[in-house]
Simulated scan of single mutants.
Amino acid sequence: MPTAQVAGRSLEFNKQGHLMSFGEWDTEIASALAEEEGLDLSECHWKVIHFLRQYYDTHEMPPSPKVIIKAIGNDVSAHVPCTRKHLESLFPNGGCKQACRVAGLPRHYCHSC
């Protein structure tokens, strides 16, 4: 497993670049991972990230974009309908793959990305 220094800590990542240990994640790591990917995290990003982590913690798998939109779509996009395209614009370098990586999930839901 590749190891990398992120936010001053030595962390293990899998071959796809996802954090191996769900429990080692914190907002400092998320910010550092986002910065590496050229993302400036907004309130909308954080809502998606926290939802991903909560869902994964409960179900042991990431949610599909459809589940995200249904659960928190109004929180992410209050003035216009939240769509998959809108979610992908928040994480432009891979959509849910990128969101899951920043959220510290050990994998993404590949059937929906």
Rank of each mutant, 00 (worst) to 15 (best):
G73L: 12
S42Y: 02
V48M: 10
G73K: 05
E36D: 13
I68K: 01
A103L: 05
H108L: 00
A103D: 06
P92H: 05
S31P: 00
K97V: 04
H79Y: 11
L33W: 02
V48E: 02
P81Y: 07
S112G: 05
G38I: 04
L87F: 06
K47R: 14
T58C: 08
K47S: 10
V76Y: 08
S31V: 03
Y56F: 15
V48N: 05
E24M: 07
T27C: 06
H59Y: 15
P106H: 12
L41K: 05
M1L: 03
E24S: 15
E37N: 13
E12P: 00
D26K: 10
L33I: 14
G38A: 08
Y55D: 14
Q16T: 06
H50Q: 12
S10A: 09
M20R: 14
A34Y: 07
R107I: 00
S64H: 12
H18E: 14
I49W: 05
V80H: 12
C110H: 11
D75L: 12
T58E: 13
D75T: 04
K85D: 09
I49F: 01
L52W: 12
A78P: 11
S42K: 06
P63N: 04
Q16H: 10
A103W: 07
R84Q: 13
K47G: 00
I49M: 04
S89G: 00
Q54A: 15
C82Y: 04
W46S: 07
L41A: 04
P63L: 09
T58L: 08
P106V: 03
G95V: 02
L87D: 08
H108D: 10
A99W: 09
C110V: 13
C100H: 08
Q98I: 00
E24T: 10
N14P: 05
W46T: 03
P106R: 08
L39F: 01
G23W: 05
C110D: 11
Y109R: 15
D75I: 03
Y55W: 15
L90C: 02
A4M: 11
A34L: 06
C110T: 10
E28M: 05
R53G: 11
G23F: 08
R9A: 04
S31N: 12
S31G: 08
E35L: 09
T58S: 13
T58G: 05
N74Y: 03
H111C: 07
K97L: 09
G8R: 06
C113S: 13
S10R: 11
K15W: 01
Y55N: 12
L90I: 03
G38Y: 08
W25K: 00
C110A: 15
L19K: 08
L87Q: 11
P62V: 13
Q16Y: 09
V102L: 02
F91V: 01
R84V: 12
P63T: 10
N93R: 13
P92M: 01
K97R: 11
K47T: 07
D75W: 09
K97G: 09
D75H: 09
G104T: 07
P62A: 15
L90S: 03
M1P: 03
V76L: 04
L90A: 01
S64R: 14
H108S: 07
H79E: 15
K97N: 08
P81H: 04
G73N: 08
E37Q: 14
P81G: 02
K66F: 01
E36I: 00
L33N: 02
K15D: 06
F22R: 15
G94T: 09
E36L: 10
S112D: 14
D26R: 12
A71P: 00
K85R: 13
A34I: 05
R53K: 13
E36Q: 14
G38V: 02
